[in-house]
Every structure is written in structure tokens, then in C-alpha cells.
């Protein structure tokens, strides 16, 4: 019972499922990217690098990739910065701490599709709460979701709104890991409060958590899809087209599966590079 047989029994379900639902599909998608496969077609032909070459000439892909990078470039620094600020401010004093923590975390929990629709309503150019507020300040109105210049940043704003709380709790975990005696040593040394203490103790101690939070947020931001699909479908005029949405459209609207697979490979390369950084950070923080 304690021998090889039992190990096989313990691991077999996981191994089989891993092969069928992870490794197999991963290899399949890479293989598909070199074919002209179309769903339902009786046969497929090997086309070599054709899909990848086509990609470099595809304006949609170029826009989509650029938009995704802009989106990540906005969401990551803003939501990490705000998350850090929120964590520091909330932990600085016990007053209303629980309330603030719950408030900032709520968007992380809430179904994004549902909240996206709420945002759409709030951002409406005519009767949305946001434009009403802006009008009171003598600004606008802006058609946030239909203005080509604004739409991507609007979606990034929703992404920030959703991610701040997540980053906040990661930073809070980092803060509780800072030894109390270090703060006390700083107090005795003359860096007891405010920015001096932050610079001498808090920030250096948060270093690994910060790097980690940046990477994990970047991965999450790269996977932006829900808000785009339900609010803009990539429009207007591809102004909010992002990578995952392009892949979805190629694969399931146009059924150009070989080409979509090639796009997936590109998407994968980005995510895997980021994930590798994450694993590296994890591994280093553990030793």
C-alpha cells in the first residue's frame, strides 16, 4: 500500500488531467499556429511561418498589441501606486480601518461584467453620473466609451478601479511582515515617523512585494477582455482593440483558428515572460 502503486493512485488523476487539459492543448495551440486550420474543415495544411508573417502585416494586430501595452502601461503603475498608498494610509491608524479595507477590496470581488455595465451607465454622455459631476465643475461632457481618444484610457480606469484593492491587500500583507522592532529602532535612531520612516524601513522592506505586485498586475492587465467585450467590442474603430479580444474574434467570430493560434502564441510569450519573473521573485523571497 505504501509502495509505487499508491503513488500512482495519488497522482494519476492529476497527471491525466494535466496532460489532457494543459500540456496537450498547449502543444496543440503551438502546432495549430503553423497551420491554416479552420473549425469544421475536413483537413488542414501546414503553412509554416505564414500566420506569423501575416501577423506582422496585420494592422489590427499592430493596433491591438499597442493598445494592450498602453493599457498595461497605465493600469500597472496607477493601480500599484494607489494600492500602496491605500495600504499605507489605512494601516497608519486604526480609525475606520476595517471599513476602508472592505470598501477598497469590494471591486476585486464583484463580477466584472456586471460592474462594467454599471460603469457604462455612469459614463454615459447624457445622463451618466460622471458627466453630471464634471458638468457641475464646468467640464465635459465626454463620451468616454465612444470617443476614440478616450476609450482605452476609460477602460484602463475601470481596470485600475478593479485592481487597486487587490494590490492593496498584497501590500498590507507585506506591511505586516515588517518586524515591529525595526520601526522602533528607526524611532530611536531619529526616523520615527512620516517620510523618514518610510524611506528607512517601509519602502526597502516592501521591495520584493512591490516587484511581485507589479508583475502580477501586469499579468492580470494583459488578460483584459471582459470590459472590452461587453462595453466596446474593440471599438470605436479598433481604438480599444486588445490582444485577447482580437484572438477571440479571430477564433470564434471568423473561425480563422490557425491564425488565432499564432496570436495566442504571441500572447503566451508575454504572459510567460512575466510569469517567469514572478516565479523568480517567489523563489528568491523564499530563500
Amino acid at each position: 500500500m505504501n509502495g509505487r502503486g499508491s503513488v500512482l493512485l495519488l497522482t494519476a488523476p492529476a497527471l491525466v488531467l494535466m496532460a489532457v487539459f494543459l500540456i496537450g492543448p498547449l502543444l496543440a495551440v503551438i502546432a495549430l499556429s503553423f497551420t491554416s486550420y479552420q473549425l469544421g474543415a475536413p483537413s488542414l495544411s501546414f503553412v509554416g511561418m505564414a500566420n506569423y508573417i501575416e501577423m506582422t502585416e496585420d494592422a489590427t494586430v499592430r493596433i491591438s498589441l499597442a493598445n494592450t501595452l498602453i493599457y498595461v502601461g497605465v493600469v500597472v503603475p496607477v493601480s500599484v501606486g494607489l494600492g500602496l498608498g491605500a495600504a499605507l494610509l489605512i494601516e497608519a491608524d486604526p480609525s475606520l480601518r476595517g471599513f476602508y479595507r472592505a470598501s477598497y477590496f469590494l471591486p476585486v470581488m464583484a463580477t466584472l461584467i456586471a460592474m462594467a455595465i454599471v460603469w457604462e451607465f455612469m459614463l454615459d454622455a447624457r445622463f451618466g453620473a460622471v458627466n453630471m459631476l464634471l458638468r457641475a465643475m464646468g467640464l465635459g461632457p465626454y463620451d468616454f466609451l465612444h470617443d476614440r481618444k478616450l476609450v482605452l484610457y476609460t477602460l484602463a480606469g475601470i481596470g485600475v478601479w478593479q485592481n487597486v484593492g487587490f494590490n492593496m491587500v498584497l501590500f498590507m500583507a507585506g506591511l505586516t511582515a515588517v518586524p515591529r522592532e525595526l520601526y522602533e529602532a528607526a524611532a530611536v535612531d531619529g526616523a520615527g515617523r512620516g517620510f523618514e520612516r518610510f524611506k528607512l524601513v517601509t519602502w526597502p522592506m516592501l521591495g520584493p512585494v512591490t516587484l511581485f505586485t507589479v508583475v502580477i498586475t501586469a499579468i492580470r492587465a494583459f488578460q483584459v477582455f471582459d470590459t472590452v467585450k461587453v462595453l466596446t467590442e474593440g471599438g470605436p474603430n479598433k481604438a480599444s482593440e486588445v490582444l485577447l479580444h482580437t484572438i477571440y474574434a479571430e477564433a470564434f467570430n471568423f473561425f480563422r483558428n490557425g491564425y488565432a493560434a499564432a496570436l495566442v502564441v504571441v500572447f503566451l510569450l508575454f504572459i510567460m515572460a512575466l510569469s517567469a519573473v514572478r516565479l523568480f521573485v517567489l523563489g528568491r523571497s523564499r530563500t
Binding site: P179, E181, E184, A185, L200, V201, P204, M205, G207
Partner: peptide, 11 residues
């Protein structure tokens, strides 16, 4: 003050 955990700044 000298602390039990020494409280040296690790960085």
C-alpha cells in the same frame, strides 16, 4: 536601544 532581534536594517 539594543533589540532582541537586533533590528538591523536589512537593505
Amino acid at each position: 536601544m539594543v533589540f532582541q532581534s537586533y533590528a538591523l536594517y536589512p537593505h
